[in-house]
Simulated scan of single mutants.
Amino acid sequence: MIPYGKHHIDEDDIQAVVDILRSSFLTQGPAVEAFEKAVAEYVGVKYAVAVSSGTAALHLAALAAGVGPGTSVVTSPITFVASANASRYCGGDVLFADIDPETVNMSPDALREVLLKNSNVKAIIPVHFAGLPCDMVTIKNLADEAGAVVIEDAAHALGATYLNGRRVGCCENSLMTIFSFHPVKAIAAGEGGMITTNDEAVYRRLLRLRSHGINKMNDQFMVFDQAKTKEKLNPWYYEMQELGYHYRITDIQCGLALSQFKKLDKFIKRRREIAKKYDEAISNSSVFTPVQISGRENSGHHLYVLKIDFDKLGSDRASFMMSLRDKDIITQVHYMPIPMHPFYRGLGFVPDHYPNSVDYYQKCLSIPIYYSLSEHEQCFVVDAITLR
Rank of each mutant, 00 (worst) to 15 (best):
P3M: 04
H7Q: 11
I14Q: 04
Q15Y: 09
Q15A: 09
V18S: 08
V18K: 15
R22G: 14
S24Q: 14
Q28A: 10
A40H: 09
E41L: 11
V43H: 07
P69T: 07
V81W: 12
G91F: 12
G91Y: 12
D93S: 15
E102G: 10
E102N: 15
E113W: 15
L116I: 14
I125D: 01
H128V: 09
H128A: 15
G131K: 03
C134R: 06
K140L: 00
I151H: 06
D153P: 04
A154E: 03
A155V: 09
A157V: 03
L158G: 04
N164M: 06
G169C: 08
E172L: 14
T177L: 10
A186Q: 05
A186T: 05
A186K: 01
G193W: 08
I195C: 05
D199M: 11
A201L: 14
L209C: 05
R210V: 11
F221I: 13
V223M: 10
K228T: 15
E231L: 14
Y238W: 11
Y238S: 13
Y245G: 00
I252F: 07
S259F: 09
S259K: 07
F261K: 07
K262H: 13
K269E: 08
N284Q: 13
S286F: 01
T289E: 03
V291R: 02
S294T: 15
H301G: 02
H301Q: 04
L306M: 04
L306E: 01
K307A: 02
D311M: 13
G314E: 04
S315P: 05
F320Y: 09
I330R: 10
V333S: 01
H341A: 06
G348E: 00
H353I: 00
I369V: 07
I385Y: 02
